[in-house]
Amino acid sequence: MDWQYFLEITFSGLTRGSIYALIALGYTMVYGIIELINFAHGEVYMLGAFTSFIVASILGTMGFPVGAILVIAALIAILWCAAYGYTLEKVAYKPLRGESRLAPLISAIGMSIFLQNYVQLAQTSDFIRFPVRIPRFDFLSQFGGIVRSSDFVILVSSSLIMICLTLFIRYTKMGKAMRATAQNRKMAMLLGIDADKIISLTFIIGSGLAAFGGLLIASHTSQVGFSIGFLAGMKAFTAAVLGGIGSIPGAMLGGLVLGLAEGYTTGYFSGDYEDVLAFSLLILILVFRPSGLLGKAKVQKV
């Protein structure tokens, strides 16, 4: 067995997986709070990639250094996408709260289609090249090229963000309010938690994370297109379900597992079946273990 190759695809799988995890967090948080599959979440990620592409292009022509470009692009993309997420919830989901489950879901699908076509019409239907690449780090060469620098940046930054999120959810007042709302919205409201605010906050955080994922993927693959949101969204959703939808550590774990599974399939078999794998995995989990790896099975109240 070729260990070098094995480690290489392991790391690229982990890289991919950590981006899935970033997006999956948004799905899982929203689902945890309002039990809605936010179909448009993948599009927010795509918007993040596009926004950072635009910012990076402008900054690039102004001659900013690569590191600064990436940081500024990330900040702006996160800010804007958080705003998109917030608006999305206010426009498409909030008026439908309390309706049947079908209505917000259809609204979410509609929003997803809308955002995709909005970007396609306003920007372009072609794939575009991201103007900057993550710089090469010299100290990584001593590992024999197993870890590429973009893998390194993505892994480190996404782990950092996930740690911050975990700390936020666990220890801050807002985080506690979020968990309370997720467990029992009515009770949380009776205790004086503003559920509307918490829901907005969830969308803002989730969208921000997705936007960051969008920037990472854009700089990693250097390909941006209006249609990337659908597939990435589906895969992130798979990750969220795999980990147990509603569970935050589950989403992270699910993302990594899915990324590794895809990495190995592509590395040892064929890249053609990578998407089929993800979709089959999704169906199998939903059918056989809908509570996922870390989720809890729910008893339906009668």
């Binding site: 039990e35 809605l36 599959i37 489950r101 079908l102 879901l105 589906m234 959703f237 379900v241 053609d272 079946y273 998407d275 089929v276 979709f279 089959s280 999704l282 169906i283 939903l286 059918v287 809908p290």
Partner: peptide, 27 residues
């Protein structure tokens, strides 16, 4: 397989089914 699934999960599984059929035809 989807008999026991609730509305939103059903939507996702059928979406996956649709994509798998298309991908298999393509591949």
């Amino acid at each position: 397989p989807v008999l026991k699934l609730r509305g939103d999960y059903l939507a996702i599984v059928t979406l996956g089914f649709g994509e798998i059929v298309r991908l298999l035809i393509t591949n």
